[in-house]
Design a protein around this nucleic acid. Structure first.
Lengths: 229, 229
DNA sequence: TGACGTGGGATCGTATACAATTTTCGCCTA
DNA sequence: TAGGCGAAAATTGTATACGATCCCACGTCA
């Protein structure tokens, strides 16, 4: 975790933003422990502020706090991973449909700029940044749909998707989903809600298929079992 | 706010539970201000704990906190009210379908007991309690579907529905939705997912139709306008 | 030598003290 | 008497102090 020096409206929000970004970009891996004093030193605030930030992120599912054990980046189970993508499958397609109805030329321009940035990040080999931008793309669609409630849920689901991807991503190279994003923008630009809904549904299924969510066979139950040659 | 004396696993969780229940039962109305010291005195804890509880509830949308102004029970706008029910319409029908596949006899018994309690509360004229139980019924279905992620979202949406109902409910007497709940249980008991999904969809539309979510015409813009006879 | 217990350091949980901001109310003036 | 100014009270925001719990290493004893 590098030195982070930023000024924000609220110290708490700033810490949340910085830590969340680090998780989204996979600079903070699932399982990483976040000691309060350490975060205090990094941001130059008291534990009061840091604890507010950590609790807030825990409520969003990004961190896990166990009593007297501190906070760590969450490690979603297989079941949780499935649930996250099932929830996204319920929310995002119809949101894309609504966005198609409302998208302004400025919105389309912004989305295209987003895709540009994704490409640039991929070209520079910054996979983490590309992943974060990909998430932002999905969020932007909810914003265009003008659905703040769903947008808030989606923000949470996309955050947790980052964790799922960190844990269960199959091939490390291929993150070539910008094709799908491009097709989506086309549908949005032409106001074709039905197409946007179907494309989003397919895109999410595609993402899901690139995860390795098969049940791991449980490791040896006993030490004796583990050592049996 | 009455005296609340309960022991819970965590003080914070206890306060959240008590305050949330009070909001659900409409004993705490939208707009009510919650001063920290007041809550401290009621529960016999320090402000540290109370502030944790208030912030947590604010993140769920139940309270609104403005900097240096304190916390109050949220007053959802018309737009927010629409969004809450739109989100429920996306999540609940398919959750009911999933629940129909998984419901055990014990689950059905529990749901029927729920409906009994609702009836009893209505008979005793405790409208607030009946409303809370009605919300719990919907949550129970998500629990049966074994979808913890969606259940968490639904918990939030149902909480906020309580606020919407407090603000926009049309007739104060008729809360006769137990018919709908009964039909839903029948569908769940017979494992008919399709029927459960449709019933839930209809039930939510029915609820929505009982709200008065028409746009209020804006009041006179100027004082002069307001005084014009 | 290894298992167990114990002490100290590290870390988290809660309460309190202090600072900043807002609200209230009395007083003065036009 | 209405309005505005200002000081004090009330309330929230942040930091710090203290207590509880956990973790690890060291030492003792079989």
């Amino acid at each position: 975790m590098d030195a982070i020096t930023e000024s924000s409206k609220s110290s708490v929000d700033g810490i949340i933003a910085a830590l969340t970004e680090a998780v989204h970009e996979h600079r903070l891996q699932p399982g990483t422990k976040l000691r309060e004093d350490e975060v205090c030193a990094l941001f130059g605030v008291s534990r009061t502020i840091v604890r507010q930030a950590l609790r807030s992120m825990a409520q969003e599912g990004l961190l896990t706090i166990r009593k007297n054990k501190g906070a760590m980046v969450s490690q979603p189970s297989l079941k949780e991973a499935h649930e996250v993508f099932q929830a996204r499958a319920l929310l995002e397609p119809s949101t894309a449909r609504a966005a198609a109805q409302r998208a302004s030329p400025e919105d389309i321009a912004r989305l295209n700029a987003h895709i540009e940035n994704e490409h640039a990040a991929v070209d520079r080999g910054e996979a983490g940044l590309a992943l974060k931008l990909s998430g932002d793309f999905h969020l932007e669609i909810a914003r265009i749909a003008d659905q703040q409630t769903i947008e808030a849920f989606l923000r949470q689901l996309i955050s947790r998707s980052s964790l799922v991807i960190a844990l269960y991503w199959r091939r490390r190279n291929a993150l070539c989903e910008s094709h799908a994003h491009h097709a989506l923008v086309d549908a949005l630009a032409s106001g074709d809600g039905e197409a946007a809904e179907q494309l989003m549904k397919g895109h999410l299924l595609d993402l899901l298929s690139q995860l390795d969510l098969r049940e791991r066979e449980a490791g040896p139950a006993t030490l004796r079992e583990a050592l049996k040659r």
